[in-house]
């Protein structure tokens, strides 16, 4: 058996855009941003003796009179309309608790899911008792943020056929800050697989369904065996996502697709090697720059 060895090296993220050295807008906790009292206090700041002070390490963002500090790495801060992928952690009375990489577990109310049998179905006490039949602990779902509670917890809903329980596929957990906000987060990629880019940094890769299942209300999961070629495409996509994330490239359909295209002449398992990763990400960034014009 051939063994593969390499020496330890310091990995630097590759970037074709200008390097961000000596940036003035980076602050650390306790740094005074301004002592001018005309500004408003945003996230990541606090007022100490009338001076606006940073409380996290990151980048200062100014919108008119509002000053925020955005940390490099943080948990998911949900907003209404965000698409999330999450895992059921608890089944309670009339609601499910969902782990979404947020500060608190999110809530999926029984009244905000589509039960089999159409829109107008009444929710009876029986439904409350059979909740575990629809979703049980450990199941993965895709959902949309319906509202945000005052303590920061999210309320989700799956009242659309595109949301619901997830069947066979691969979950990749990345940093929420790497996901680019877009019109749609559901993509049928031309390479033969589909992808849900959750705003919370959870990415779901699955084989493209043959036809859209109807009347299932999002609880139908196919248990058909997935073909080897589909599985290979999904594994390649997963490794591409990890490569892009390692070099902090924003994730959206085009960047993932370009990365997939750049990786085709490597074996799937080789994509995880640092030098191959670097090469692929370099090619992807080149393609993205060319496309921008």
């Amino acid at each position: 058996m051939a063994a593969d060895m390499r020496l330890p090296t310091i990995q630097k993220p590759v970037s074709l855009t200008f390097s961000a050295f000596d940036r003035k807008d980076l602050v650390v906790p306790g740094d005074v941003i301004t002592s001018d009292t005309g500004f408003m206090r945003g996230h990541g700041t606090y007022v100490d003796e009338e001076k606006l002070t940073a409380s996290v390490a990151g980048e200062v963002q100014r919108v008119d009179k509002l000053i925020c500090v955005k940390p490099l790495k943080t948990r998911f801060n949900g907003e209404v309309g965000d698409v999330v992928v999450g895992r059921i952690t608890e089944v309670q009375q009339k609601r499910w608790k969902v782990e979404t990489n947020s500060r608190l577990d999110s809530v999926l109310l029984l009244s905000s899911v589509n039960l089999p049998g159409g829109e107008l179905r009444r929710r009876s006490a029986e439904d409350e008792l059979t909740m575990r039949e629809y979703l049980q602990e450990g199941d993965l779902i895709s959902a949309e943020v319906q509202s945000v509670f005052s303590d920061g917890a999210l309320s989700l809903h799956t009242r659309s056929l595109k949301y619901g329980k997830l069947g066979q596929g691969v979950l990749v957990q990345l940093s929420p800050s790497l996901i680019k906000r877009q019109k749609t987060h559901f993509h049928n990629l031309p390479c033969g697989a589909s992808m849900i880019l959750g705003n919370n940094g959870f990415v779901w890769l699955y084989p493209t369904p043959e036809q859209l299942e109807e009347e299932a209300g999002g609880f139908y999961t196919s248990l058909e065996p997935v073909s080897v070629s589909d599985r290979e495409v999904i594994s390649r996509l997963r490794n591409c996502l990890l490569a892009l994330a390692a070099h902090k490239v924003l994730l959206f359909d085009t960047s993932v697709l370009y990365c997939y295209e750049s990786s085709v002449h490597h074996q799937v398992k080789d994509i995880l090697k640092p030098e191959v990763m670097e090469e692929i990400v370099m090619l992807t960034q080149q393609k993205l720059l060319d496309q921008e014009g």
Binding site: S15, T17, F18, S19, A20, F21, D22, R23, L26, V28, A57, G58, E59, L72, S177, L178, K248, L250
Partner: peptide
């Protein structure tokens, strides 16, 4: 510690497009 954090920030910040 301040030096360490600033160094880390420079290296790890996403070069914004």
């Amino acid at each position: 510690l301040d030096q360490v954090v600033r160094q880390h920030l420079q290296e790890a910040s996403v070069p914004s497009a």
